[in-house]
Every structure is written in structure tokens, then in C-alpha cells.
């Protein structure tokens, strides 16, 4: 490949980085805004101030919303990781066309528009009397997270040697023992990736929450949504900055796990 810095190559790189700048800059601008000394959204005028971070940490409503979001995200992550992992392992081991149809069926929540599923779940949640309850939100978030767990775990299983599982069974391990001691440890990076996806999805989810909750359950995204709708308080900028930092940490963790997964896969194919 030619590496000369031709005019065309400069153009291409310039355009590409312009687009990337368009993607990243709006996020970066939030950070200085969160340090503004003004009481409205703006860049700092005279000095930097941590006022809006203080506002977040001292406001019971913001803290309460954060705690609720964490509880819901943890619960739905645990549920979707357990269900999704078992489902992926089952489909992988059965490996007939019916099993692969099941795996495709599990992707449904990715395809159905969020507003449609929000309306559908709201209607059914009314019948079940779980509107505006923790269990209602956790169940909804579990359903939409399962596909991502199934995808990441299936990808990890693709690099796992079936014969290891058969060997364990032949040596007399029960199915539960095999899953616990043989399969799950070697696909752990995939399971954890799925968990990170599931957590992020639940923690950021807003559309279903707008439908299936009212006053009792009040998550962080809903509070941000209401904040944007009415007065654009700079506290949102401080919350957003903290969320960007959390996202960055989760992304780095996921990238690290992905690397582990591809190393594991390389090893498996090397041995086979």
C-alpha cells in the first residue's frame, strides 16, 4: 500500500477526522460547561466552579434517582445475564436449525422500534398491575438486554472447543457441574461483556421508563429528560460529565474483555 502523503490521502484523512471531530466534540464541550460559574448553561465566564457538582450531590432527588437506576440496572443485568447465558449455551450445544431459529428469535427486541415495545409492555403491565413498580421496570429492561447477552456469549462459545464439554460429561460430570466448572469459566470474558452491555442498556433506558413509570419509580434518565424538557439546569451538565466518565470506564473494560476473548479463541483454534 502506498504511504506517500499525496493530496488525495490528506483530503481523505482531513475529512475522516472532521467527521470524527463532529462525533466527539459535542461530548467534550459538556465538560467545561459543567464547571461554569453561571446559574445557566454556558461556558465558565470568570472562574471555574464545582457548584453544579455540589448541587448534584446535595440534591436528594438526583441522588435518589441515581440509586434507583443502579438498583434496577443491577437487578436486570443479573437476570438477563443468567437467562441469556443459559439460552446461548443451550442453543450452542443443541446446534440444530431449530436452536438457531431460537437464537434469531431472541434478537426481536433489537428490531422492534422502542416506542412500539414501550406501548405494548405498558398495556400488558397495566393488566399485570406492575406499572410504576421496580419489578415492572426490571422485567422490561431484562427483556431488552437478553439479546445482547445472547450475542456476546454466543460469540465467546464459537471459540470454545465442544470436546472439552464432552470430555467433562464422559468423566461423569453432571450438566450443571459441566456448565459451572468447565463452560462458564472459559467463556467468562463473553459473559462479562454481555453484563456490561446489559448494565449500560438498563442504566440509560428512557423510552420504556417514560411509559411504564410515573411517580413511584423515577430513574436517572427520566430525571435528565425532565430537566432537558423544562429548564436546562447546569446540574445536568455535571451529571452528564460523570456519566461520560463512567461510560469511558465501561468501554475500556469491554475492550479489555474483547481482547481476552480473541486471545482465548486464538488459543482454542491453535490447539484444535
Amino acid at each position: 500500500m502506498e504511504r506517500r502523503l499525496t493530496f488525495g490521502r490528506c483530503m481523505m484523512l482531513g475529512l475522516a477526522w472532521t467527521v470524527l471531530g463532529f462525533m466527539v466534540l459535542p461530548m467534550l464541550i459538556i465538560f467545561p460547561v459543567s464547571l461554569t460559574d453561571q446559574y445557566y448553561l454556558s461556558l465558565p465566564k470568570e472562574s471555574l466552579s464545582l457548584e453544579h457538582y455540589k448541587a448534584y450531590f446535595t440534591d436528594e432527588q438526583w441522588i435518589d434517582a441515581t440509586v434507583q437506576s443502579v438498583i434496577i440496572a443491577v437487578a436486570s443485568t443479573v437476570a438477563s445475564v443468567v437467562l441469556g447465558t443459559l439460552c446461548a449455551i443451550g442453543c450452542w450445544r443443541i446446534s440444530t436449525s431449530r436452536a438457531s431459529a431460537v437464537r434469531t428469535f431472541m434478537l426481536l427486541p433489537i428490531i422492534v422500534p422502542t416506542i412500539v415495545q414501550a406501548l405494548a409492555l405498558y398495556r400488558f403491565w397495566i393488566d399485570l398491575r406492575i406499572v410504576d413498580t421496580y419489578i415492572g421496570v426490571i422485567l422490561a429492561h431484562t427483556l431488552v438486554s437478553i439479546p445482547y447477552v445472547v450475542i456476546t456469549v454466543s460469540a465467546a462459545l464459537a471459540g470454545f472447543d465442544v470436546r472439552l464439554e464432552q470430555a467433562a460429561r464422559n468423566l461423569g460430570a453432571s450438566m450443571a457441574q459441566t456448565i459451572r466448572h468447565v463452560i462458564v469459566p472459559s467463556i467468562m470474558p463473553g459473559v462479562l461483556s454481555g453484563a456490561i452491555f446489559a448494565f449500560t442498556i438498563s442504566f440509560d433506558e428512557i423510552v420504556m421508563v417514560l411509559f411504564i413509570t410515573s411517580r413511584n419509580v423515577y430513574t436517572l434518565p427520566k430525571r435528565i429528560w425532565d430537566g432537558i424538557e423544562d429548564h436546562l439546569d447546569p446540574t445536568i451538565a455535571s451529571v452528564a460529565t460523570m456519566l461520560i466518565v463512567v461510560t469511558l470506564a465501561l468501554l475500556l473494560a469491554e475492550l479489555w474483555l474483547r481482547q481476552r476473548r480473541s486471545i482465548a479463541r486464538g488459543r482454542a483454534s491453535g490447539e484444535a
Binding site: M27, I30, D204, I206, I224, I228, A240, L250
Partner: peptide, 10 residues
């Protein structure tokens, strides 16, 4: 990965 809400806010 960043929340769509935060991006819309920006």
C-alpha cells in the same frame, strides 16, 4: 456507548 440522552442534551 454514550447515552443517547446525553448526546441529545449536548
Amino acid at each position: 456507548w454514550l447515552s443517547v440522552l446525553i448526546r441529545a442534551f449536548a
